[in-house]
Structure formats: structure tokens, C-alpha cells
Amino acid sequence: MAVIFDRTPVLTDVPFHYCPGCGHGIVHRMVAEVIDELGIRNKTAGVAPVGCAVFMYNYMDVDMYEAAHGRAPAVATGYKRVHPDHFIFTYQGDGDLASIGTAEIVHAAHRGEKITTIFINNAIYGMTGGQMAPTSLVGQKTTTSPYGRSKEHCGEPIRMAEMLSTINGSAYIARCAVNNTANITRCKAAIKKAFQTQIDRKGFSMVEILSPCPTNWGKSPVEAMQWLEENMIPYYPLGTFKEV
């Protein structure tokens, strides 16, 4: 019988621990596929974050680091400086990258660090139980914004792709979403382009990916996809913000 679907070689055979309808599994697979397609596996290392993707080192069958909360770009910098001809990616959530790790990500971009960041923006803290993220939308109810995020009280959600695209050291910055097949296809192309940017030594590259969190949004997987499309995409426009 012909095999029409198989596990990507760069993924281990450990089952993902993610909730039903979560976007992490989709993105993990795409990252693994891209590493495989580019033929860079034996020269690739990844840095897992603190957040839901904390166990990523169990799933990606490449050398992996686990970094303290927010520090993945600094760890990746250390690796890249030792192995400049290797490839390294960080995989970070919105709390990790856009809150506690803002200094590390901004300065990695600022140095033009030749690393690739996969940034999962699901507008909430998943692992710790649905607290407000810097990317939570105005009015969004979370366990630490039970009355809805107030603009007056804690500002508006931070747009990292736009912000990092203003930095000279960044070479490729895009925002994608995994809410439908067309967007997923675009997302994979963007991840590939981001890795290619590193291969071509052009500078820092990042793909921000809008991803659903049905569990902490209190929605079914299908509702979550709809909510993402109707609420997140209007505030976080998709597209390429920087390409050199």
C-alpha cells in the first residue's frame, strides 16, 4: 500500500502533549519539514522556550537547548557565535518573547544576529493557565484581566513584527496565521524564507505566527479559528514586514 502521509524525519516519535485545536503541533511539523527540505538537519540546533512549547526538545529530532524564560535569543547567540556555519532557531511564545524577553529579542535583531525566531502569538499565557499576555487584545478576558483587558490600565497589545521590522539588523520579518489551509501554506513558505535568510547570512529573521489556544480562550477548536480570524487578524495584519 502506498504511504501518503508519514512522520517528518526531523520529528521524534513522541506524541505531542498539546490540547485539541492548538496551533503548536502544526507549527512544529512545519519547522521540522523545512529543516528536512533544506537539508540542514545535522547542522541545526533549536532553543525551546518557557511556555507551552517547553517540551519542544522532546519532539524535534535535532540538538536542542531549553532556555530560561525569555532568554532563548541570548542562548542562540552563544551557539551561533561558536558555530557560525550552523543553523539555530528559537521557538518562543508571546510571554517569552514579547514580555520577559523583549530585551533579548530586540538586541538579537539589533545585532543582526544570524538566527531565526519562530514566534507563536496566541494572545494569552497558555502553560500558566490563561493569564493576560502583552499580545492579549483590548477587551479580552483572561484570568488576570477578568474584566477584559483595559487600554487605560495596561496599554494596547504589542505588535512585535512591526516593531522588529524597524530595526536595521532584521532581514526578514513576516506575520502569518495557522487558521486555514491557505494561511498554513503561506506560513510554511515564510518559515522556509526565514531559514533561507539565515543560510544566506543576511541577518535576523522572524516569523510571527497567530495561533489558536482554544483551551484558554474557552472556545472549541472551530470557534477558536473563527475568533482568531475575526479578532486577531484585524489587529495583527498578516504579511511580510521586512525582506532584504
Binding site: A45, Y65, A67, A68, R71, A74, G78, R81, V82, H107
Partner: peptide, 12 residues
């Protein structure tokens, strides 16, 4: 960041 870069380089 510096100590985490040491982690990255030492780990490499």
C-alpha cells in the same frame, strides 16, 4: 543576556 550567551556557547 550575557550569562545566557555563556550557556549557549558552553553548551556548544
Amino acid at each position: 543576556a550575557a550569562i545566557n550567551m555563556v550557556y549557549g556557547a558552553g553548551g556548544a
